[in-house]
Design a protein around this nucleic acid. Structure first.
Lengths: 325, 325
DNA sequence: ATGAAAGCGCTAACAG
DNA sequence: CTGTTAGCGCTTTCAT
């Protein structure tokens, strides 16, 4: 499995193509202001293919002073399983612009983000986690010349999600809402923002403020919570996410209640099980793929000096109405 | 957000500490065979901290001929949500050995693995996806001097998981088993391996071969499947994973049946919802954290020339018995 | 249109 | 013990 291995270098390609290393570089980078005759270009590209040559990123960025590597930092507790679809689109769109994406799982006691950034010499860092100013500075010193902190977990979008949940329920005629808070401490902050959105919507519609209850992913506990809501005349609850919502659906069943008759339920994320749930779960979803693409656009635009355009609106969460409400 | 930024270099540190760049390198790398007086070391380390200096990975690996970057390739359709726990442990254990982990989502139409490897100049590549020989060669040429392909999706472990599911059910007295195949084409191969394991266990126990049915994540479809199994006297079914299992649980309910009385169900992965399910779902789980650590050990051992030890056994899936069986 | 040459920031002999 | 000196593989003026 181990071996020294002598990697192919640009000099090898140059030799094979009968040109200089400089020319190889020109061809491979489409260096502006260099006119390469078709014939030469072909010879070089040929040698590249034949030798399966790949420029070493380290040498490249050392010489050029910038790399084409983008580092994405994802929070440990990710934004549902849809994150994959997001990353996929993001990576693809970046690749189209000649950029390479790698990912780092934040929060772990592993290596701090700036260290990783320096280690791989990323020139762009995108964080789905909020980054404090100090970290951003450290990232700059570490060599990042572009740092993006997305609004994923920021108040406006989170509040909007809560608002959408509540508005959907209120539109359906509910006048007393519950909110199912997640048990995990790291989720509480986000949950708080979403709950605030729910409260906003309630206030705006002139209905009672929501009754928030802490919930565990546990059938018995959920059954208890359900009864408690019923006791307080709550007729519909916004769950932190689809997991919580499905657990609640199961808790309802165990308590001998049904959705949406006894208690309507709405989640967020649109996980695969949401459709399989009984009744199928209403939920709030992002078009994660679109988000991935527009984020990539923003990165590329910024890199090429053009103005970026990444408004929270481009996250555009939307309601998916299914039988659970 | 943008800026040229003048990064701190080792020369800056040398100047600030009143030593040469070489000495800085010696101190930072604990270069064997170099004895640095405590006083000098302190001055250097001091300057490093003061300037928040981080060696550029590109320069480092260019000069040293090897980087401390490990690239992990994860399949698009990941091994359940537990993957995060795995990555976390893996990253942490690697960090303890001075290695930096970054992740790549395979399968996307983004950039091929070898390109990514070359771009970040990784010296170790670990793939949770099976890698064909050609790719492994390409990775070597791309600069990886260590390539690991784990057994995660390989036959032995997958078969073992199926066998464990079946044995658990058979131990419980079931004599006719069903298998719930996932609908996603990319999952069929893995599912096939697991089903083979189920069949093995059945043969070994002298009971009828399992009745496999294709299933969609959809309540109505699951209800139909449940009835079909019942018709064929199946009393227990092994589900491809917990998602499928939970959907089946819901389908059962919709068909007016109960688990485990009418049909026992067992999944795999132990996702959070497994405990919240009603009844709580029996399942097969890995100790993903242990896997992460032992994989890191194997990488480090191999890198330092010692023999690696990563047997399929170190994946050790085990049964979690809950009320659904 | 192409090549020669000078580094990019760092490590690794080799001197001293 | 520490500094000097070569490069690592590539890009990028600057000549030609």
């Amino acid at each position: 499995m181990r071996r020294p291995a002598k990697r192919v270098t640009s000099a090898d390609v140059a030799r094979a193509a009968g040109v200089s290393a400089a020319t190889v570089s020109y061809v491979l980078n489409d260096t502006p202001g260099q006119s390469i005759p078709e014939e030469t270009r072909r010879r070089v590209l040929d040698a590249v293919k034949r030798l399966d040559y790949r420029p070493r990123g380290s040498a490249r960025s050392l010489a050029a002073g910038r790399s084409d590597v983008v580092l994405l930092s994802i929070p440990h507790l990710s934004i549902g399983p849809g994150i994959n679809r997001f990353v996929e689109q993001f990576a693809t769109a970046l690749a189209d612009a000649g950029l390479t994406l790698v990912t780092h799982l934040a929060g772990a006691p592993g290596r701090p983000l700036p260290d990783v950034c320096a280690a791989i010499d990323a020139s762009v860092v995108v964080s789905l986690d909020p980054l404090d100013d100090e970290t951003v500075q450290a990232l700059r010193r570490a060599g990042a010349d572009l740092v993006f902190t997305t609004e994923f977990e920021a108040h406006p979008t989170m509040r909007l999600m809560g608002r959408l949940q509540a508005e959907h329920l209120i539109d359906l005629g509910h006048r007393r809402l519950g909110y199912a808070m997640p048990e995990h401490p790291l989720l509480r902050k986000i949950a708080g923002d979403r709950l605030a959105g729910v409260a906003e919507a309630c206030a705006h519609a002139g209905v009672d403020p929501p009754t928030a209850l802490d919930t565990r992913l546990d059938g018995a506990a959920m059954a208890r919570a359900a009864r408690r809501w019923r006791r307080e005349s709550v007729t519909a609850v916004c769950a932190y996410n689809d997991e919580v919502a499905i657990a609640l659906l199961m808790g309802l069943r165990r308590a001998g209640l049904t959705a949406p008759g006894d208690l309507a339920v709405i989640g967020t994320d649109d996980i695969p099980l949401a459709q399989a749930a009984d009744p199928p779960l209403s939920t709030i979803a992002f078009d994660l793929e679109k988000v991935g693409r527009s984020l990539a656009d923003a990165v590329v635009a910024n890199l090429s000096g053009r103005k970026p355009r990444l408004t929270p609106a481009s996250l555009s969460p939307h309601v998916i109405h299914r039988a659970s409400t």
